Amino acid sequence: MDNSEKADPWSPINYKLHANFVPKLVEHSLITLLSPKPYERILDLGCGDGMLTYKIQESCKECIGIDKSQHMIEEAKLNGCKDVRVVDCEKLIEWANNEGFVGYFDSVFSNAALHWMKNQEAVIEGIAKCLKPGGRFVAELGGFGNVQSVEKSLISALDKRGYNGKDLSPWYFPSPEDYTQILSKYKFSVSNISHFSRPTELPTTISGWVETFGFSFLAPLEDNEKEIVKGEVEGMCRNGAFNSETDKWTLDYVRLRTVAQLSS
């Protein structure tokens, strides 16, 4: 892995090939829940390749997409997004103060991004800073139990090689109770929160999924060992995740969806 990959491990090519289901699964339901209005300013937090940002910007006054990955922001621009920026979402308060976005947005939207942010309190506090009083937060993220089979397999494969697999996990998958507690701490009133299973058929293989999303587990390994680990993970997940009749893999996705309002 070269220095640029270490600094930004996200690959738009891998994302499109192995994970094109991410925006498709929520495109209608989550945006309908957001219900953008023509006069609203909306922040798409963790916008990735901008597929949903593009949809939202068609229905509101202004939509700004932010993401930590330069690679994904470049892809979002190619996908027609008008205003997308490289921002570390765990430093939202600093960004809002510096760029004049304190109390600026009517809504903050996020899909499949928040579970990548370990310092969740900093993120929620930053979201509160960016919203107008009474503004809304509409989000879906991985919930408790999300991709448990592949995460356990990756941890096991890394532990066996002398690494601390749990420490290498980049994910935060909260329960509804835990997430409600954080939101309440920063003066959000939760009007809806749901925790549900969404078994998800992969367009390729678990190995491809690990290549796209499991890069933090693979980072300490040499290239040949990465391939061996991906093969081991597929082997450990095969019984529960592979359908030999369809030749398809299905992962145990669990989602947490929430709608909350910032106190006026």
Score class of each variant (00 low, 15 high):
R255C: 05
Y104H: 13
N243C: 13
P203W: 08
F213L: 12
L141S: 07
N119C: 08
V259N: 10
E62I: 03
P176A: 07
N97H: 12
Q261F: 13
V22Q: 12
D88E: 13
L221Y: 13
M72Q: 14
T180F: 00
H18V: 01
W95Y: 15
Y163Q: 03
Y186Q: 03
K77R: 13
K91C: 10
E5S: 11
C89Q: 03
E225R: 13
Y104F: 15
I13K: 14
I228E: 14
W171Y: 14
F217M: 05
D2I: 09
I56Q: 05
E90C: 10
K132I: 09
S244R: 02
F242D: 03
S194Q: 14
S169Q: 04
L114A: 06
T180S: 14
D2F: 00
F213M: 10
A260V: 09
I124C: 01
L17C: 02
A96T: 12
I127E: 08
T204E: 14
M117F: 13
K6C: 01
C81A: 12
A19P: 02
E125T: 01
D49C: 09
F188L: 02
G143T: 03
N3F: 12
A19S: 15
L183E: 02
E222W: 03
D83T: 14
P23M: 08
L33G: 04
S156K: 15
P199S: 10
R85A: 10
I155N: 05
G100H: 06
V123C: 09
I206C: 03
A241L: 14
